[in-house]
């Protein structure tokens, strides 16, 4: 257990240091998210009543799309630089690789998502600074990353990685998308645990199931 935590932390720190120096994933994903939010402004009439109706939906579509973009890079960076073999040959368990990758993906995603709060406030007058929404954001992002990290390992080994990841990822995370949109509506309408609690528990249950399942499955995915 101690060795597992140490190797997972080492991989996490490596990924974070790489990201801090290059800012490759972070900057491209953030720019893409801002563009998506901006384009949404022209897909409907952005007046207060429509925003109340479609606001939660556009927030989560933007998050899911940027999430896919970011997760595509999780294993692709290793593959393109030829460091994946090194990582696999290192004397660490596959579960530790999974945990480290999961943590770094989640961190980058959550930071980007939170940086989008002011963007949504600016463009749509959508106030996301709400403790319940923050909790939903974190819980849902962990779920996305739990599934996405594993499928990213599959997709990065194929010729069609950009197409394959969303194709495999979206149907599986459909429950989180439904839960996140529903609880965001609840939170933005001023609801507390009564409106959000049920969905939050639901998303956390999903997270736990897929965290266990993914760390079990990574072995089968990475095996040559």
């Amino acid at each position: 257990m101690k060795a597992y935590l140490r190797s997972a932390t080492a991989i996490y720190v490596k990924d974070m240091r790489l990201e801090a120096r290059t800012k490759e994933t972070f900057s491209s994903v953030l720019a893409f998210a801002v563009i998506v939010a901006f384009v949404f402004g022209f897909t409907f009439d952005p007046n207060p009543s429509t925003i109340a109706l479609v606001g939660p939906g556009i927030v989560w579509v933007a998050y899911v799309f940027t999430g896919i973009l970011g997760m595509n890079r999780t294993f692709a960076v290793e593959r393109d630089r030829g460091t994946l073999e090194g990582l696999l040959l290192a004397p660490v368990g596959r579960e530790a690789i999974y945990a480290g990758k999961l943590a770094s993906t989640t961190t980058i995603m959550v930071v980007v998502e939170m940086l989008l709060y002011p963007v949504f406030l600016l463009l749509f007058d959508l106030d996301l600074f709400n403790i319940w929404f923050v909790l939903v954001t974190v819980a849902a992002t962990v779920g996305f990353a739990a599934v996405g990290t594993l499928f990213s390992a599959i997709a990065s080994n194929t010729r069609a990685r950009e197409v394959l990841l969303p194709l495999l990822f979206l149907p599986i995370v459909l429950p989180i998308i439904i839960g996140a949109v529903a609880s965001t509506s609840g939170a933005l309408e001023g609801g507390g645990w009564d409106r959000v609690g049920k969905w939050l528990q639901f998303i956390i249950a999903f997270d736990l199931v897929f965290l266990v399942l993914s760390s079990w499955a990574l072995d089968f995915v990475l095996e040559e």
Partner: peptide
Amino acid sequence: YAPTVERGSRWAAVVAIFGAAAVPFVYMA
């Protein structure tokens, strides 16, 4: 899209298992 048949089989198996695990969640949601 898999580079070898064996890997494709393993990947597909993982996809099927993930789909099955998501079924109760989709149903509830």
